Simulated scan of single mutants.
Amino acid sequence: MRLEVKNLAKRFTIHTRGGVEIEGFSNISFSVKKGSFLSLRGSSGSGKSSVLKTIYRSYLPSGGAICLHTDEGSYDLAKVSDSAMLEIRERYIGYVSQFLQVLPRIGAVDIVATPLVQKGESEAVAKQKAREMLDFFGIKEELFSLSPLTFSGGEQQRVNIAKGIIAPKMLLLLDEPTASLDATNRKKVLEKLHTLKNEGVSMIGIFHDKASMEEISNEIYDIQG
């Protein structure tokens, strides 16, 4: 087992409304095996993205446990310190958000190559692999050196996915990875995700597209709003 989520809950305090608390989600329990894909399904506002952000510890959980099992040991992500969580993210957990968040004036190739360089790949090899990944996702070569902040929404999403999967960690969290993509590029993303599964990467994802979710998922977990 790679990840076990047990009775996870998150409440939000709205300070602009006198500190009133609202429930984001509660009683969330599931597990993910090595090389398995679990999808979160639920209506808008049911807390799907908040569950991912809580696992990644962008949100601090209000209750429950998030047990990550690695070859070096197990960690309860709900309880580890902030500094420990930063190290765990760097070593074990990747996150692909709905929107590309990068510094301006940095070219697409450099953005996609960065995770490989951080893992110890030479800059030349990392950039070549980044070019191949961008080409696979249909980004035109003349755009490689340009900032993706100038790209269309669909192109930005493809750069975002390329950056998120080019150097995959053992657990990958994906928030609407195919949201802005046409049928051809959705198929390409799913092809890469299948490859990652075969390589033993565990994944948790959210899909707007039902067909994509059903194709890639080993299990679908329903969240009730």
Rank of each mutant, 00 (worst) to 15 (best):
L3G: 11
E4C: 01
K6W: 08
N7A: 09
K10S: 11
T16E: 06
R17W: 13
R17Y: 12
G18I: 05
I22K: 13
I22Q: 12
G24W: 15
S29G: 13
S29D: 10
S31F: 08
K34V: 08
K34P: 01
K34D: 00
S36P: 04
F37P: 03
L40S: 04
R41G: 09
S43M: 13
S43H: 14
K53C: 03
K53R: 13
T54F: 10
I55P: 09
R57H: 14
R57T: 12
Y59L: 14
Y59F: 15
L60C: 10
G64P: 09
G64C: 11
A65Y: 12
A65N: 15
C67D: 04
T70L: 06
T70W: 10
D71S: 07
E72Q: 12
G73A: 09
Y75W: 11
D76Y: 09
D76K: 06
D76E: 04
D82A: 13
L86C: 10
E87V: 05
E87C: 04
E87D: 12
R91V: 03
Y92I: 02
G94E: 06
V96S: 02
F99P: 00
Q101L: 07
V109W: 05
D110N: 06
T114N: 06
G120Q: 06
S122Q: 06
E123V: 07
A126N: 00
A126E: 00
Q128P: 01
R131H: 05
E132V: 00
M133Q: 01
P148K: 08
P148E: 03
T150L: 09
F151Y: 14
G153P: 13
R158N: 10
V159N: 02
V159C: 01
K163F: 03
I165W: 05
P168I: 04
K169F: 03
M170R: 14
L172E: 06
L172N: 06
L172Q: 09
L172K: 10
L174G: 04
E176V: 10
P177N: 03
T178E: 03
A179R: 10
S180P: 08
L181K: 12
A183L: 13
A183N: 10
T184R: 15
N185W: 14
K187H: 15
K188A: 09
V189R: 01
V189E: 01
L190D: 01
L190S: 03
E191K: 12
K192F: 07
K192D: 06
H194R: 11
H194E: 13
E199H: 00
V201D: 04
S202C: 04
M203D: 02
M203I: 00
I204F: 04
G205N: 02
G205V: 05
I206Y: 09
D209V: 12
S212I: 03
E214I: 06
E215Q: 13
I216L: 15
S217H: 04
E219Y: 11
D222G: 08
D222E: 15
I223N: 07
Q224I: 15
Q224P: 12
